[in-house]
Design a protein around this nucleic acid. Structure first.
Length: 431
RNA sequence: GUGGUAGUAGCUCAGUUGGUUAGAGCACCAGAUUGUGGUUCUGGGGGUCGGGGGUUCGAGUCCCCUCUUCCACCCCA
């Protein structure tokens, strides 16, 4: 019976694995450049852990199971709860600031579509214990630093940045009741995902005053502090709003100082659906705009307390591999040439009697740190050169008559076809 | 969970109103070529036509169910 792969999963054959490693290596390098240290947790956790942050609906969207002891478990659909649990467990022993990154394999029981599968990898960076917006700027910088290192320019991607604190202050200022904010966020978050009319209709249902609806719509299109002051002039006297605005402007100032300002844009329509964000929020999108968000993040100062720990401020970002890979491919940043296998040497042997000598040479080269492949067949040299070519070997060593006669091997440069006769000692000295 | 789309070799796809033993290109393996690769030529292996059921003398082709893919919703941590 033929067994099919599970819906929404991927098999990583060697070429695909090369792509995955390319992405993960880039994530890791960027994290380390910015001073983050790596952590990981178990691939499953208690189901309850995901309900704390996201409620009961979440159960339908993740893979859960009951173990033989009756424990309700879930395969992790995100790693932030694990991070919160791990940090809380050792919160008094961890040196501050806590700058951690991870590249977990996650599973979500959703219907697969473009840029979204049921199993994927997600780069997470988080800074805990820093209330200052410097940490927010660092998170955004590290994200952009990676995207830049992958070859994406400000013509390819844009970081849209806003502030939940600012949005909340503005909405309260406009007379929205505090207990209405949480229901309003998911609606505002839909602005870019819905046609303008449908969005306005949804908003009108949630907000009574049509004048307020109009003002909110104007605010959603704001791209600067001036825009906001123009739309709501009397907000200048609102202390909370002013503080939030000042913070946001400091974030942009820091991002400019770090040389990534060209990627960044203030955009009030970035809200994020989740209730738990408390400050800066941001998303990176492709400039063309036909893909879902490349990544998203923001400040979440209450989460650790919600997980039974002390109040500890936090800010972070998550980036999945699916949309990123589509984007990198579309921009020609993942080409076959990039992933051609590279091998230092291929050892060919033309006489079965010299097999041991060829093996010894290969082993010494390997001991010297070179990558070496060899043929498991002796004889037909043409066939072995063909294999050397297929392996992506830069040089082919031919162990044959010359070795028997004078202990030398033929070194053939695969790119040029140039050949030279070299002693084994000289060969090893080259390493 | 809802709607649409498609499924024939490892991959990309042909396959006539239902009609003999289902084809091509690429890839793979072998030979031409037992000491010289990328080119070329010759040959070979590889298919339960996604799966199951039905109609029919006869189904890759028509009907039903199901699985899977891709796309759009719901959701998006």
């Amino acid at each position: 019976m033929k067994i099919l792969p599970v819906k929404g999963t991927r098999d990583f054959y060697p070429p695909q694995m090369t792509v995955r490693n390319f992405i993960c290596d880039g994530w890791k390098a960027a994290s380390l450049r910015s001073g983050f240290v790596e952590y990981d947790g178990p691939i499953f956790e208690h189901l309850q852990m995901y309900q704390i942050k996201s409620g009961d609906e979440i159960v339908e969207q993740l893979f859960h199971l009951t173990d033989r002891g009756g424990r309700e478990l879930a395969i992790r659909p995100e790693i932030t709860p694990t991070l919160a649990r791990m940090v809380n467990q050792q919160v008094n022993a961890l040196p501050r600031p806590i700058k951690w990154f991870s590249m977990p394999r996650l599973c979500r029981a959703e219907r697969p579509q473009k840029g979204r599968l049921r199993e994927f990898f997600q780069w997470n960076i988080d800074i805990l214990g820093v209330e200052d917006v410097l940490a927010d700027a660092e998170v955004i910088f590290c994200t952009l630093d990676y995207l830049r290192s992958a070859g994406l320019t400000s013509k390819d991607v844009i970081a849209k940045i806003s502030s939940r604190k600012l949005l909340a202050a503005l909405l309260l200022h406009l007379g929205i009741a505090a207990d209405r904010l949480e229901t309003l966020y998911p609606i505002l978050d839909k602005k870019a995902k819905l046609p303008a009319e449908a969005f306005e209709e949804m908003l009108a249902k949630a907000v009574e005053s049509s004048a307020t609806v109009k003002t909110i719509l104007e605010l959603m299109a704001a791209h600067s502090a001036d825009d906001i002051l123009h739309i709501v002039p009397d907000v200048a006297a609102n202390e909370t709003a002013q503080t939030a605005l000042d913070e946001l402007q400091r974030v942009f100032g820091y991002l400019k100082a770090m040389g990534v300002a060209e990627y960044c844009r203030f955009d009030m329509s970035i809200v994020r659906g989740l209730a738990y964000y408390t400050g800066m929020v941001f998303e990176v999108h492709d400039v063309v705009g036909d893909l879902r968000a490349v990544c998203g993040g923001g400040r979440y100062d209450n989460l650790l307390k919600d997980f039974g720990g002390p109040a500890l401020s936090a800010t972070g970002m998550g980036m999945g591999d699916c949309v990123l890979e589509i984007l990198l491919r579309e921009r020609g940043l993942l080409t076959d040439e990039t992933f051609k296998r590279k091998l230092d040497y291929f050892v060919a042997c033309t006489d079965a009697a010299l097999t041991s000598a060829a093996l010894a040479i290969a082993a010494r080269l390997r001991a010297g740190g070179a990558s070496v492949e060899l043929s498991y067949k002796t004889g037909n040299l043409g066939k072995q050169l063909k294999q050397a070519d297929a392996c992506g070997a830069m040089r082919c060593l031919i162990v044959g008559q010359e070795y028997q006669d004078g202990g030398k091997v033929v070194v053939k440069e695969m790119a040029t076809g140039e050949q030279s006769l070299v002693s084994e000692e000289m060969l090893l000295n080259r390493l």
